[in-house]
């Protein structure tokens, strides 16, 4: 058969921006789609925490001290994952704790990405002394172990939600900055950037108008991967007692609280630990799918 069924060629099918094509690819990948749904569900639960959580997360009830999960002997279905050492409902604390984790993940990555984009574009496009100055700072910051750096900052600034965000952003911007700088270096050689210069476009317009839209995909992919990382860092800080202060629920501090009872009441640490695992895994799988869909290097 030499006649080929003439399906309407995609190329001719009206405007299709590269972004929309990427979205189609992403939606076709079931694993990452499912992961994205999980992330969105956790996000929704966090936003609507007072409606979703069965109990007040800070309500103590010493009679329910270390009550096991519902399916074990002594458990109750209204306290699905059991209770902690103060008799607080673990499920409710996980739901409220998601607010802290997600807030810090989003805030840190958003701030760090904004700073990283600005400095990375400047370093990569302007080159010269700007590049040297920014790149040296990046190198120095990369030389510090992340957690120890954050612990030192927290020790100086004292605990608190805002301080956690600042302590993490201090170093976190380095990652998007390096990605942006590298991509910008490649972009500034392209003919379309040269074309923009040839028509007299300003440096700002070229950096933000021409280059930025083309490097956004890798930046977004990196941002999602880093978000998972930041959530773990926050949990680590809270676990060490340097993070969110009691009685506010945070997954990291919940794992820390349960440490002492891990042999007798394993559920106190395990369920918040699982929450961290599920959220981080889902974000990573979803970002994997994002990269496959939007990274032109893989797409071709």
């Amino acid at each position: 058969m030499s006649a080929i069924p003439a399906s309407p060629a995609l190329r001719a099918a009206g405007p299709a921006s590269p972004g929309r094509l990427g979205l189609q690819t992403f939606l076709a990948n079931r694993m990452s789609l499912a992961s994205a749904v999980i992330v969105l569900l956790i996000l929704a639960a966090a936003v609507a925490a007072p409606l979703v959580a069965p109990h007040d997360p800070n309500e103590t009830d010493l009679l329910r001290r270390l009550q096991p999960p519902a399916w074990l002997e002594g458990g109750e279905w209204s306290y699905l994952f059991g209770c902690d050492a103060l008799g607080r409902d673990i499920l409710s604390r996980i739901v409220f704790g998601a607010r802290v984790s997600i807030f810090i993940g989003v805030a840190v990555v958003a701030l760090a990405t904004a700073i990283g984009i600005a400095l990375g574009l400047a370093a990569g496009y302007l080159r010269g002394w700007t590049d040297i100055a920014i790149s040296r700072v990046v190198d120095v910051l990369l030389g510090f172990p992340y957690l120890i750096f954050a612990i030192a900052l927290m020790a100086m600034m004292g605990p608190g939600l805002q301080n956690i965000v600042l302590a993490l952003v201090y170093k976190e911007w380095v990652i998007p900055c390096r990605v942006v700088r590298g991509e910008t270096l490649a972009m500034r050689q392209t003919e379309f950037v040269e074309a923009a210069r040839a028509v007299g476009a300003t440096r700002g317009r070229i950096m933000f108008g021409e280059i930025l839209p083309n490097i956004l995909s890798p930046v977004i992919v990196v941002a999602t991967i880093r978000m998972a990382h930041v959530i773990i860092l926050e949990a680590s800080l809270s676990f060490l007692g340097l993070g969110v202060q009691p009685p506010t629920a945070s997954w990291g501090s919940m794992v820390a609280d349960g440490r002492a009872f891990i042999l007798d009441a394993w559920w106190v640490s395990t369920f918040p630990g699982l929450a961290i695992l599920v959220l981080v895994l889902a974000i990573n799988v979803a970002s994997q799918g994002l990269r496959d869909a939007f990274d032109p290097k893989i797409n071709d």
Binding site: S2, I4, A6, L10
Partner: peptide, 17 residues
């Protein structure tokens, strides 16, 4: 000789007879 490539837009017969 006939050589085909399946693509998003449909089957492309790059070499046709």
């Amino acid at each position: 000789l006939r050589t085909c490539f399946p693509t998003r837009a449909g089957l492309v017969t790059a070499v046709d007879g």
